[in-house]
């Protein structure tokens, strides 16, 4: 049976993934929009930076984040100047790390979706009197539904499976910063295979169900378009 601190790890993990996903959808939208539409030379540079977590070992990212969060690091100093608690070994720190770590998984699907949308629907909406924000809400959002769904699922799932970055900056404090993937690792280390099974199998089934729902929704949207 799972212990109390396993349940706590589950709740922390879900909270972390949900918070990260919501923040990423909000932050990622303007970034993806800019990348999809800009003619600036900076584009490739920004794209490369956002894609970095795809190739970097999570420990590298975690290491630099830890340095940045430390009392002498740039972020740590800024935080202490404003009078906020330190980010290292805190849930807020985990969220910040996850936002950076999962950024490409949200920005790229959104960017692709905006690119495939093309200019035409927006031009039509403009000639029909819709302002820029109106165009985004009435045309871009509904036509990018699939892009947002994909971005949300990938962002959520990727944060769920995070290990290296969390380990580096979160410190594995049960009930505070210990997430499921690390709890499983601890159980295996302690040869508590039974408990590891509860968590691992739970994660497996849960992830499968989420993906099943997404692909089901995907299929329904496609069928609707054809109808």
């Amino acid at each position: 049976m799972p212990q109390d601190y396993d349940i706590a790890a589950l709740i922390i993990t879900l909270r972390l993934a949900a918070t990260t996903t919501i923040i990423l959808l909000i932050v990622g939208t303007p970034i993806a929009w800019w990348l999809a539409n800009t003619r600036s030379r900076l584009r490739s540079t920004i794209e490369a930076i956002i894609a970095l977590p795809l190739v970097l070992p999570p420990t590298v990212l975690g290491f630099y984040l830890l340095l940045a969060f430390s009392p002498d690091g740039p972020v740590g100093r800024a935080v202490s100047v404003v009078g906020l608690p330190s980010l290292a070994f805190s849930f807020t720190g985990l969220v910040l790390g996850s936002v950076i770590y999962s950024m490409p998984f949200v920005v790229q699907p959104l960017q692709n979706s905006f690119v495939s949308l093309g200019n035409r629907p927006l031009e039509v909406a403009a000639t029909l009197g819709a302002s820029a924000i109106d165009r985004f809400i009435s045309v871009v959002l509904p036509l990018s539904k699939m892009g947002y769904l994909t971005a949300a699922v990938l962002g959520f799932a990727h944060t769920l499976g995070e290990f290296g970055v969390v380990l580096m900056i979160g410190g594995n404090i049960p009930g505070q910063t210990q997430v499921l993937s690390i709890a499983i690792y601890d159980h295996v280390e302690a040869l508590e295979y039974g408990q590891a099974h509860w968590l691992a199998a739970g994660l497996l089934i849960g992830s499968f169900l989420v993906l099943l729902m997404v692909y089901g929704a995907n299929r329904r949207i496609h069928l609707m378009k054809k109808a």
């Binding site: 035409r120 629907p121 031009e123 039509v124 403009a126 000639t127 029909l128 009197g129 819709a130 302002s131």
Partner: peptide
Amino acid sequence: VEARRVGLVFQHPS
């Protein structure tokens, strides 16, 4: 564009 009140019918129906 949105303040011009211009009607536009494109070559490809949009």
